[in-house]
Write a protein that binds this DNA or RNA. Structure first.
Length: 206
DNA sequence: GTCGGGATCCTCT
DNA sequence: GAGGATCCCGACA
């Protein structure tokens, strides 16, 4: 896929309707999400884009994962069926969106960290204010704002709901690095579970 | 009921 | 590079 083709408006993207696609370990889902399309249809319109950066959170043993401290009211969605959206508020300001995966009911998830917005640019710009397009959805908080996600979207079904994933052409060139902001997680903080497309200008900073 | 801290981001120095 | 914004969650008393 050329860069020019990647920036064409989304014309009939094929939604992932097979829940088994999500019913896999976060490690596998995270890599397949790179290059895939994230779409959110709201009353205001559609925003869609190509996923360029994610982080995998691996079930209850991963001390960086919310599920590591057991099921709570906040993280209950992580313990439910794969293929749902887990949205939570961080630092009292930003909404982070995760794709709940499996296998089975294993509470794993993939944090969506950066997207290249390719449809609904006007709406995304209106939600984000005056920032360069490269930063519209760079970073999980910015991504949540650009796509209009808030806690009302927590638990949304990606297979049947108004937000969904369309499989894209998986990038052959991606890199792994440690996750951001999880220094409290001991040895898990150093595990390279962050995946991003090499040299993509739409990735988050750092 | 109280309190500490957080899967962030932006501005200012 | 440092610090502030802002509020929900969860632990603990």
């Amino acid at each position: 896929m050329t860069v020019a083709a990647a920036r064409e408006p989304v014309a009939g993207p094929r939604r992932i309707t097979d829940r088994a696609w999500f019913d896999r370990p976060a490690l596998a889902v995270a890599q397949d999400l790179l290059g895939a399309l994230l779409v959110h249809d709201s009353a205001e319109g559609r925003v869609a884009g190509r996923i360029v950066e994610v982080e995998a959170y691996q079930g209850p043993e991963d001390l960086a994962a919310h599920s590591s401290r057991g099921r709570t009211e906040r993280n209950a969605v992580m313990f439910g069926d794969p293929g749902h959206l887990y949205v939570y508020l961080v630092y009292g300001l930003h909404h982070c969106a995760n794709v709940v995966c499996g296998p089975g009911l294993k509470p794993e998830a993939v944090l969506l960290r950066a997207v290249e917005v390719i449809e609904g640019l006007g709406l995304a710009r209106a939600r984000r204010g005056a920032v360069p397009d490269e930063r519209l959805a760079a970073g999980p908080g910015n991504l949540g704002a650009a796509f209009g996600f808030d806690r009302g979207h927590n638990g949304l079904d990606l297979v049947r709901g108004r937000a969904w994933i369309a499989a894209g052409e998986r990038s052959a060139r991606f890199e792994r690095s440690p996750r951001v902001g999880v220094a409290y997680a001991g040895e898990w903080a150093a595990v390279p579970l962050r995946f991003s497309i090499v040299d993509d200008p739409f990735r988050s900073r750092r």
